[in-house]
Amino acid sequence: MDTLVFWFFAVVSVLMAIGVVFAPSVLYAALCLLSVFFCMAGFFLLNNADFLAVAQVMVYAVGLTIVLMFGLMFTGNQALPAQDNKWGWLVKTIAVFSGLSIAGVLAKASSSFVPKFVTPMAEPMKQNVIANGTATQLGELLLTKYILPFELVSVLLLIAMIGAILLSKKTFSDQGSGVFFSFDEGKLVPEALGWKKDVGLE
């Protein structure tokens, strides 16, 4: 049964990944990406990672896809103009070839990969994980052994959020607030304007 489920997800995810790369419309590519995310959640479940599967669905399949859709709506879904670059086909061929060779080399190396060390208690540990779920242990690890990266990542998320808001506000205009860019003596000078008014200081 697990084998059948695995092959189903494997075939669907590879086909949909090809769709992400080659779909004619970016909107179709986003929908293909959505199904790749769901397939990944399935693989996580097959690997006894229940918490990660739910997080995958919540963060990637719901959150990220919505953000992508909003981005597409803001930028419009029109087709790109035809490429006028003379060597465009060459660049494209090299890129496809290098992608194929990366996939080929990695797949060749990993098809015969056997881990040098496997813990002797793997099977009973697996049964224990299946019986108890992973959320408890993940929470313990995050708040003890990995507390520093956990805190750093939370700061990173805050910075990214503020940066994203600032960047996608009314930019590059004479009025309103946001990040503005001006040339001073040949140097690009960014400055945040209008934020004092926004927070009520002016």
């Binding site: 590879v14 890129a95 992608g99 990695l106």
Partner: peptide
């Protein structure tokens, strides 16, 4: 394990291909 790793490398290669060929920034 090797089946999963082969699948992961195929997906990684496809992703690289898309980054290298894609002209649309969203893609």
């Amino acid at each position: 394990l090797s089946t999963y790793l082969v699948l992961a490398s195929i997906l990684f290669g496809l992703g690289f291909m898309g980054v290298a060929t894609g002209r649309h920034l969203m893609r």
